[in-house]
Simulated assay, not measured.
Amino acid sequence: MHPSVKTPASVPKWEEFTVTDAPQPAQLDNIKAQLDLILLALEALAGIGSEAMLRAAVDLKIESMVADRVALWRLRQSSPLRKGQGGRKKLDVEEARALVLISCYLAKQNQELIRRAVGLLEQLAEQNREPHQAALIGDYLDTFCNTYQERMEDGESVSPDTLTHLALKLLIDLLFYSGPGGSRRLWLALLDRSR
């Protein structure tokens, strides 16, 4: 994968995004799906795997929520977009917040790579060129699309253009989630999108 310089990530706090109204079960399903896609985008861009996610949980002192690979797999597998019935179907608010913290922590660690990718995307758009013409973005799009097709229930039926659009939107979103207040920004976006 592409090397990137890791920037030190400050530890976000639970207080950064409190829950005034607990999401309803249907909203939590949508939140599960969105969080899984964000983690998929991080995986595809930065080569982040379950070990990095578990290390982030330890760094954030939330390892009780994501204790091991099986717990992480069950949380991710609970996304309604996923193939198979192996995961737990219920994700509670605290687990959702834990995944938000992990996602933003990892995005912040890979902020330089995310910035470089978004910068390339802007350059290509200005030059009226296709995103895949830059190696970094082309590799990201290929990995994202292939992984989506392998893991998601509708993977085989979603058009490549739709997947490319989704991957690029998530890439731009990652830029916002990697900055100061990223956890709060992501949490509010999840709540807003789930309504």
Rank of each mutant, 00 (worst) to 15 (best):
A167W: 03
K108W: 06
L113F: 09
K108R: 15
L141W: 03
G119H: 04
A125E: 08
A107Q: 04
R151N: 05
M152T: 07
L101Q: 13
G179Y: 00
L168Y: 11
P160I: 05
F176L: 13
H132K: 11
G182W: 00
L186K: 04
T147G: 06
I114R: 06
Y105V: 00
S183C: 03
L168V: 07
L186H: 05
S157L: 02
Q133S: 15
L101E: 08
P180A: 11
L171Y: 03
D161V: 01
L106D: 01
P180N: 10
D161G: 07
L166N: 12
P131I: 04
F144M: 09
L171P: 02
I137P: 10
P131F: 06
D173K: 12
Y140H: 06
G155V: 09
T162F: 11
L168T: 07
Y105K: 06
Y140L: 03
G182C: 02
E122Q: 12
Q111A: 15
R116W: 10
V158K: 14
I114L: 09
M152V: 08
V118A: 06
C145N: 15
G155N: 10
R115Y: 12
L99K: 09
R185H: 08
G138T: 01
D161R: 12
L113Q: 11
E122N: 11
G182D: 00
L99A: 10
S103L: 01
H132E: 13
T147Q: 14
C104G: 03
L175E: 05
L121Q: 04
L166F: 07
V118M: 06
L141A: 08
F144I: 05
L186G: 06
K169H: 13
N128W: 07
P160N: 14
G155P: 13
S103Y: 00
L170G: 09
Y105T: 01
L120F: 01
L113S: 11
L166M: 15
L163D: 13
D139F: 05
Y105P: 05
R184E: 12
E130M: 12
T147F: 05
N146V: 04
D142R: 15
N128I: 05
Q111M: 11
G138Y: 00
L113K: 08
L136A: 07
P180Y: 02
A134Y: 06
G119Y: 02
T147D: 07
N128D: 15
A125V: 03
V118Q: 02
D173E: 10
R184T: 05
N146C: 09
L168C: 10
G181L: 02
G179E: 03
S157H: 07
L141G: 08
K108C: 15
